[in-house]
Amino acid sequence: MKKNTFELKVGLAEMLKGGVIMDVTNVEQAQIAEQAGATAVMALERIPSDIRKDGGVARMSAPQMIQAIKAKVSIPVMAKCRIGHFVEAQILQALKIDFIDESEVLTPADEANHIHKHTFHIPFVCGCRNLGEALRRIAEGAAMIRTKGEAGTGNIVEAVRHMRSVMTSIRQLQNMDPSELMAVAKKINAPYELVQKTAKLGKLPVPNFAAGGIATPADAALMMQLGAEAVFVGSGIFTSDDPEKRAQAIVQATTHYQDPDILLKISTGLKPAMPGIEISSLAEHEILQNRGW
């Protein structure tokens, strides 16, 4: 019997496809998310938009808070650790959660190195802005990739930029002569074997999800049509005026992303979404996507 293999890690990521992973900060929100049809919850103390407002150092959530959520929901529970903070990851593994997000939303612990994720038994998800970054994280052991987007803004533009970048690069790889792939690997700073594999598959070697700025059912469907295999919604649900209804609508939109008639129906009658932030109004140090490399 084999346990904790990379195949099993990717296997769980496969099960989350076509679904919505929701940020929750307490048991009540976790239950709302589960009832609305979330495939998993991300347990964290503050949603990204509050982390933005509060400033200071954002760290792994308190174990008892994650534990309380884990006890009340049946769907997988994820939690975030800081980039490079492998001890936070060890603690999350000891907590037996189902997935760890090595996340740029928290303050990085190491500006040079990400966690060596292959040494962990728990699967990891990591953010990316482009193909090179995605393949570097996969080489380190990430079993799922998501766009970074710009968390906590309710503005989809950065997630679109990142998904477009990844998908365009993959389409370019598919049209290349095999002898050209080494030059690509050199240019994008990615392992040659993973560049070859991506060219052959025509997709990332692990599931490719969208995150960072999704606030409406239409945002979720947009990311799915651009090539995402599932979506994360962080601040978008519980900062809106009707979390239950919006959560359910985003779940439905992620399933029926190709059907404008259904999208119209589920988008109708929702209360206002989160206000959102224009990216150009953010100062350099407020941009989360530049954390990690």
Binding site: K3, N4, L8, K96, I97
Partner: peptide, 14 residues
Amino acid sequence: KRNAYGSQLDSFIT
């Protein structure tokens, strides 16, 4: 019975 073996750490191949 759902999730009868435990969490992801208890997933296995046999």
